[in-house]
Design a binder for these strands. Structure first.
Length: 262
DNA sequence: ATGTCCACAACATGTGGA
């Protein structure tokens, strides 16, 4: 199986590139983030022509996640129990969706950005990650086969995952509490599936649109694949498809593609 | 050598978010 995750920064704006990429790469399962569209606006018919079923969970203007599968799609869960909501507990954002795709249980996540350390949104990010840990803990405990949670975590696990730690020193994505939240996920028995880079030896997955950062390779690895033991044992290859970040009208993220013997 | 994009409201361009 080929499994992938990609923050597309609007599935509508990215549709031509998404369809081209699906034809070229032909993943069996693709997790999307930042679809930025309500479910009725999701281009389901276009991806269906390529053989994919869709489970979408969208807000509209912001956020939005989805799972595309051509190996079956069942037991879809859009709720995240314990979701703290933002700015208040009654406002839940579309940041997580889970489904069973053939033999694989999968969760696509778009972790809150956090904006800046100390901001309300930063506290929300940590609370949201705590809720995610609880949900994933239950999934890991009940999974009798391969399980993976993947998506845009908006956290670089280590200093090696950013082009220059000093550049990000005062920003979110690298603070100890955020990294501790990732470690808490791994403590559930999940493995960080490290992709190889197609260039530069740095498997970054995100480069800001501004100031030519992609061309200077000033990026971060914040799109992650965390798999349980069964999933990790089956990994044959993993890479960041930086080619999808090139050219006209790219997302600011590149897909992470994982080949698993499942 | 240089370097942002997206959606929305509204209908020009400002705004918020990333």
């Amino acid at each position: 199986m080929l499994v992938a995750t990609w923050n597309v920064n609007s599935v509508v704006a990215r549709l031509p590139r998404l369809l081209d990429w699906l034809r070229e790469t032909a993943p069996d399962v693709l997790c999307l983030q930042e679809t930025k569209v309500v479910n009725d606006g999701f281009p389901s018919a276009q991806v269906a022509e390529l053989g994919y079923q869709v489970a979408a969970h969208g807000d509209g203007r912001w956020n939005g996640v989805a799972i595309l599968s051509r190996v079956g799609l069942a037991d879809v869960a859009e709720e995240l129990p314990g979701d703290p909501g933002y700015p208040t507990a009654d406002v839940l954002e579309a940041r997580s969706i889970a489904a069973t795709c053939g033999p694989l249980r999968i969760r696509s996540v778009y972790v809150p950005n956090g904006r800046e350390p100390g901001h309300d949104h930063y506290a929300y990010k940590l609370a949201w990650l705590s809720a995610l840990r609880s949900a994933v803990s239950a999934e890991v405990a009940t999974a009798d086969g391969p399980f993976a949670v993947m998506g845009d975590f908006n956290i670089a696990p280590t200093d090696d995952d950013v082009f220059d730690p000093a550049f990000y020193a005062t920003f979110t994505h690298v603070t100890p509490p955020e990294r501790a939240a990732l470690a808490a996920l791994r403590e559930l028995g999940l493995h960080d599936v490290m992709p190889r880079a197609l260039k530069h030896d740095t498997p970054f997955t995100y480069w800001d649109y501004r100031a030519g950062m992609f061309h200077k390779n000033m990026g971060m690895r914040i799109d992650l694949v965390y798999g349980n033991q069964s999933f990790a044992d089956a990994v044959e290859d993993a890479y960041v498809d930086r080619n999808a970040r090139k050219g006209t009208g790219p997302s600011d993220h590149a897909p992470v593609v994982v080949k698993v013997a499942i």
